[in-house]
Design a protein around this nucleic acid. Structure first.
Length: 567
RNA sequence: CGGGGCGUAGCGCAGCUUGGUAGCGCGCCUGGUUCGGGACCAGGAAGUCGGAGGUUCAAGUCCUCUCGCCCCGACCA
């Protein structure tokens, strides 16, 4: 393609709405343009990248025997009601009524639709296992789209689903995906890590995420550099750090603590360590069930962990609710005799012998309370892991890093087979639920993650495999070298390189700047002098290295460079 | 949903305090000179000032309402 014929519209200045690197560079490079909040058009160069990524995904999915299909985005509300996710997705799902008044939804994911397909087409153990996948637009009405293409309301996802006879067979399908995903992200040039994850609203059992570590990632990942433990902060575990000093409360007594509400206030007022205080939080469900949550004063609650215990319809009670229900200011509630429906405590609470807690009377706390004095219905790991907490496997200090989630794999089990009645007949003729897995990849996120990972002050440095063009012919003076350039262009194209030819009649500086901004890995500079000697200059975007090469040796030289520099 | 910011030409912005013919840079078009790092000269086109209502002789500017976009938080495979 000649540059002047391609819709490449670069911008010298930063659009003001863009904060993150990938967002800025995608806009400046003319790869995307915004249509509304969280909804983008992929312009031709951007869509080329998306297609290259999708082709890599296809080839790796096909290699594990997965079959591509395409399901509808416009789905009937009925199937979501059957699985129960009409409610659990809530406003995150785009829902509306058709002209007949029937509920419909734009699919945010496709477990329901594919489960119904499986129910119609898979009847016998002979039909299993199966892996089906699609590359399809998903719709999610995110409360706050952000980071350009990182969190959007309409996006292309590769989603696949496995159907197996039993759990061992699911393990195999899961492992096939895990390996295929690793190859996909490697081929796209990404650096990534597989981490333990929360399965959240997808339901089911074990799940892992493929994370790309970048400053702008919106997920937090806890990692141990010593033993390699890595987990999403939502599920990460850590050892409880002993609270060094010994409590010196000899007996239980009520003390006046006017206006001391927070752990910090109370610790300061009574001159005790925060780890000698037990923090009491009240959660309330939509139905009005109350749960008191206890945790050692120097820790914070991890709400993802807590809600997986309590149920997602619980939320932190408002001060007004607490006043109304119990007649106490939130700062003074405590486990001693409060009529909460349930009392759940973090494991760290076991660790204190005598402690300070709210007294359930305004402006008073209890000191010297013992565990045996109070009712605790359940102990659980509810702690939010902090940087520097100790690894639960090897006791080394943990780190917390931001990351972009580019893939997520789940062992669903029978959640959808049960709710949607997806069964097969086994050897002995008995009907059993099909065991399912579900596996997603965010195509646009791969594109954004690659930019976050590989850029400099001049622009993007695309990995060769997903670059919008592999080779760019920069003609310094088109009027004088067009025949020569034509030959080089032919040569590159015939040799299989995805080549663009910048024959624009503008100053060379602009061509260099554009090439650097949009990140083409290999540039071939054609100048009058060198052309006269039968040479062209190769410039590599990644390290700015330059080589003068005879045209007849060009292809070989480029192949060698790609190999050696691992473009 | 809470907090903050912003809507003026394709992009980046000034003009608003103190109402009086809508501007600048980049980009775009025409002609010319240039031609290895966003070059120069001359000429030109392009804006319902996000929208509605109001105040006023007069509104980009003041008032009311409203829509949209971005950031932080809440929330979220």
């Amino acid at each position: 393609m000649k540059w002047s014929r391609v819709l490449i519209r670069t911008m010298k200045e930063n659009p003001k709405e863009a904060e993150t690197k990938s967002h800025r560079l995608l806009l400046r490079g003319g790869f995307i343009t915004q249509h509304q909040s969280g909804v983008y058009t992929f312009l031709p160069p951007g869509w080329k990248i998306m297609q290259k990524i999708q082709n890599i995904i296809r080839s790796e999915m096909n290699s594990i025997g997965a079959q591509e299909l395409l399901m509808p985005s416009l789905t009937s509300g009925e199937v979501w009601k059957q699985s129960g996710r009409w409610e659990t997705f809530g406003n995150d799902m785009f829902k509306f009524k058709d002209r007949k008044g029937k509920d419909v939804a734009l699919a945010p994911t496709h477990e329901e639709v594919i489960s119904l397909l499986a129910r119609d087409y898979l009847h016998s153990y002979r039909d299993l296992p199966q892996i089906w996948y699609q590359l399809q637009t998903k719709f999610r009405d995110e409360p706050r789209p952000r980071g350009g293409i990182l969190r959007v309301r309409e996006f292309i996802m590769k989603d696949s689903y496995s159907f197996d006879r039993d759990w061992d067979s699911l393990d195999k399908s899961y492992q096939l995906h895990k390996d295929a995903y690793s190859r996909i992200f490697e081929r796209c040039g990404l650096e990534f890590k597989i981490v333990e994850a929360s399965s959240g609203i997808m339901g089911g059992g074990h799940s892992e995420e493929f994370m790309v570590f970048t400053k702008t990632g919106e997920d937090s990942v806890v990692i141990c550099e010593k033993c390699g433990y890595a987990a999403n902060a939502e599920v990460a575990e850590a050892n409880i750090i002993e609270n060094g000093s010994k409590e010196n409360f000899s007996e239980k007594k009520i003390v006046h603590t006017p206006n001391a509400r927070s752990v910090e206030d109370v610790a300061h007022f009574l001159d005790v360590e925060p780890s000698h205080i037990v923090k009491s939080l009240l959660y309330v469900s939509e139905k009005g069930q109350t749960a008191m949550v206890l945790i050692r004063g120097d820790y914070e609650i991890n709400e993802a962990k807590l809600l997986s215990k309590l149920g997602t319809d619980f939320q932190l009670a408002s001060p007004d609710f607490i006043k109304e229900r119990f007649g106490i200011e939130p700062g003074f509630i405590g486990p001693d005799g409060l009529a909460a429906d349930k009392i759940i405590a973090d494991e760290s609470v076991r660790q204190v012998e005598r402690f300070v807690a709210g007294s359930n009377k305004d402006d008073y706390h209890i000191v010297g309370l013992k565990l045996s004095d109070i009712r605790i219905d359940e102990f659980a790991d509810l702690r939010l892991v902090r940087e520097g907490d100790l690894c639960s496997r090897c006791n080394a200090p943990l780190k917390i890093l931001n990351a972009i989630e580019v893939g997520h794999i789940f062992k669903l089990g029978t959640k959808y087979s049960d709710s949607l009645d997806v069964k097969y007949a086994d050897y002995d003729g008995t009907l059993k639920p099909i065991i399912m897995g579900s596996y997603g990849i965010g195509v646009g996120r791969i594109m954004a993650a690659a930019i976050e990972l590989f850029n400099d002050e001049k622009g993007i440095i695309w990995p060769f495999a997903i670059a919008p063009y592999e080779v760019n012919l920069i003609e310094i003076n088109p009027a004088k070298t067009s025949n020569f350039s034509d030959n080089v262009y032919e040569l590159m194209t015939k040799s299989g390189f995805d080549t663009i030819w910048d024959e624009r009649n503008i100053s060379a500086g602009i061509k260099f700047k554009d090439a650097e901004l949009i990140g083409i890995p290999i540039n071939i500079i054609i100048s009058e002098n060198k052309a006269a000697r039968g040479e062209a200059e190769i410039q590599i975007r990644k390290d700015a290295s330059k080589y003068d090469i005879k045209v007849e040796n060009l292809v070989q030289a480029i192949n060698t460079i790609i190999e050696e520099k691992r473009l």
